[in-house]
């Protein structure tokens, strides 16, 4: 989160809405620890990362859907071992769960 602050502050100061996705849980082999985070502005700017680059693209589209009112905040899973998991997998074969929300607090 710390490495996101400068960009997030800049976006918030301009009144641009911001979504943030944080790793809350990892099963099996995961490249990043809980707390790894990325933020996406409503203008499509991105900062931070939540995996080794495997799922960032999918996180950006979910974040933009959230800001567009097309989905609710909540837990998003990526990986192969979970029925609800998105099609995008992790190259390392594990599952990560992210919590996606708007940073409106």
């Amino acid at each position: 989160m710390k490495e996101l602050l400068d960009d997030v502050d800049r976006w918030r100061a301009k009144g641009v809405r911001v979504a943030v996705a944080r790793v809350v849980d990892i099963e099996g082999s995961g490249p990043r620890e809980p707390g790894a985070a990325m933020a996406v502005s409503a203008e499509g700017e991105v900062v931070g990362s939540v995996s080794g680059g495997c799922v960032e693209g999918a996180v950006v589209s979910e974040a933009l859907r959230l800001l567009g009112g097309e989905r609710s905040p909540g837990v998003v899973s990526f990986g192969y071992s979970d029925d609800e998991a998105f099609a995008v997998g992790l190259t390392c074969g594990g599952t990560i769960r992210l919590f996606l929300e708007e940073l409106d607090w």
């Binding site: 989160m1 909540g74 919590f99």
Partner: peptide
């Protein structure tokens, strides 16, 4: 963000489900 920038201990608890 103030605590993080000042490198002071802080925790954030969020209801996720």
């Amino acid at each position: 963000s103030q605590r993080l920038r000042a490198e002071l201990p802080v925790a954030l608890a969020t209801v996720i489900e």
